[in-house]
Amino acid sequence: MKKEFILPKTLEELWEARAVHPRGALLAGGTDLLVRIRAGRADSQALISLDRIPDLRGISTGDGEIFIGPATTHQQLLDDYSVQKHLPLLRQSVEVLGSPQVRHMGTLGGNICTASPAGDTLPALYVLGARLDLRSPQGCRTVPIKEFIEGPGKTVLRKDEILSGIRVPMPDPGFRAGYHKVGQRKAMAIAVVSMACQVWINDHGTVGRIRLGWGSVGPTVKTLPEVEKFLEGRPLSLEVLREAGQMVSKGVTPIDDVRAGAAYRRLVAGRILLRLLDLLRKEVF
């Protein structure tokens, strides 16, 4: 069986390649795609690589947002100063993603388009309010990540579109951030439960604004505005967090699988809020 491997160097060449190979798979880092191909769960007749298109790589700052090319690897995110300075939440989520090997190969765009309920960067990107540029030969539209991901492995990406950019608004200063991941082991783990949090604490010690997102407890990242509303105006005390945790446990919709049971995920999704007690001792950005 003949297989094609195409390395476009510009977007124009990419559109051409896609026209020639309408069923061709887009290859970013390959850390998910190659696994699916090996398991016979993805078409591998033609692989179109996004690796050599400069427009799809790199990180730039401007207009109150950080623009990240989708083919930027996780390691490049870790190495980038503006991500370190403005998006510590995203950085923390990438720090515990996969292994060093996966972080050097895998890309942010790939993590988004794979749309796994356990994708490590997704809760962070939901909390940060990321918007995604979807480009086709005909033009470009921008959608919030919340609307982009529809379910496990399902996105609104049309057949002629690619994810061409990730726009993350620069958060207002004075926040604290934490990504808390529970896996089956301490590295190379797929999240059994994860939670991303960004919080602004008032001068008098209560929550001014808080944004939370949970991974692996539903078909997509779970956000619970009622929990955020409950916490706003209250101190991050043990009692408050316990009460909020019970709301979380009721609000999430996990399933049983080979990694963990739904009951455990439900319980931990709530209890993990207690990690926010640590957050108060952490650095303010």
Binding site: V35, Q184, R185, K186, A187, M188, I190, V258, R259
Partner: peptide, 27 residues
Amino acid sequence: LFEDFQVQKGEILTTGLATYILPTAVD
């Protein structure tokens, strides 16, 4: 702590190293 070769009605559920959890150096 981790390794549980799960079999349900003779069917292996942990079919590879993604679901059969071995310890890593940091564990």
